[in-house]
Simulated assay, not measured.
Amino acid sequence: MAMRPLFFRREPVRADKVVLCRLIAIPIATLDTNAVLPFLNMREMDLQVRVSEVAYEETVTSFRTKMVKALIEVANGLSSRSALSLQHQHLKKALDARKRAEALYETRYRAGAIALRPLLDEHAKSQRARGGTEEVTI
C-alpha cells in the first residue's frame, strides 16, 4: 500500500496514534489548515468591522448632539444675563429719575408751592420704582 498524504486519503480517518503521528509529521498539511482558517472567518470579521463602524458613528453623533445642546444652553444663558443686565440698568435709571422727581416735589412742598397730595403721589411712584429694581437680580 502506497503512502498518500492525509489530505488525499479516501478511507475514513481513525483517531489513533498513527494518524496523529502522520498529521504531526506533515507540516505542510498543518500549515494549510492554519492558513485557511482566518479566511473562513473573513465574512464574520467583515461584519464585525461594520458593526464597529456603526457603533463609532453612533457615538460621534451622540457626542455632537450633546455638544450642540451644551452650546445652545450656554448661548441662552449668556443672552439672558445680558438682557437682565440691560433691564437692570434701565430700571436703575428710572429709579434715579424718580428719586430726583420726589426730591423736587419735596422741595416744592417745603417751599409751600404744592399741596401734600402730589408729594404723597410722587412718593408712592418712587416706592413702586424701588420694588421693580429689587425684582431684577443678576
Rank of each mutant, 00 (worst) to 15 (best):
Q89H: 11
S62Y: 11
Q89P: 08
E102P: 02
R110S: 00
L71M: 13
A115L: 10
A15W: 10
V54I: 06
N34R: 08
E57T: 09
V60D: 07
Q48D: 10
L31E: 03
L37Q: 13
M1S: 04
D32G: 06
V18G: 09
A94L: 04
I138W: 15
M67I: 07
V54C: 02
A83T: 12
S126D: 04
Y109N: 12
S80V: 11
R81I: 14
R43C: 07
R110G: 04
R100L: 05
Q48K: 14
R128L: 12
L37V: 08
Q89G: 12
L120E: 12
L86I: 02
N76P: 10
Y105R: 03
Y109Q: 08
L31K: 04
K93Y: 00
V13N: 05
P12I: 01
R10C: 06
A124Y: 01
E58F: 05
E11M: 04
A113W: 10
E102S: 00
L120Y: 11
K69Q: 14
T65F: 14
M67D: 09
F63T: 07
L120R: 09
V68F: 13
L91G: 04
E122K: 12
Y109V: 09
R130W: 06
R108Y: 02
E73Y: 06
A25S: 07
H123T: 03
R64N: 11
V49E: 13
D16H: 05
A103T: 00
E11I: 00
R22A: 05
R117W: 07
A129D: 00
V49N: 09
L116K: 10
G77V: 12
L23F: 02
I26K: 03
R4L: 09
F39A: 06
T61Y: 08
L31H: 13
L116G: 03
E58R: 11
I138D: 11
E73R: 10
I24E: 14
E11F: 11
A111K: 05
E134W: 10
I72H: 12
R100Q: 03
D16G: 07
E106F: 02
V51K: 09
D32V: 03
D46I: 08
N41P: 01
P118A: 14
V54Q: 11
P12N: 09
F7I: 01
L20S: 11
V60Q: 06
L116A: 10
K99L: 07
D121K: 10
F63L: 12
A115R: 14
D96L: 00
V68K: 15
A70Y: 13
V36C: 02
A15V: 09
L104S: 00
A129V: 01
E135C: 07
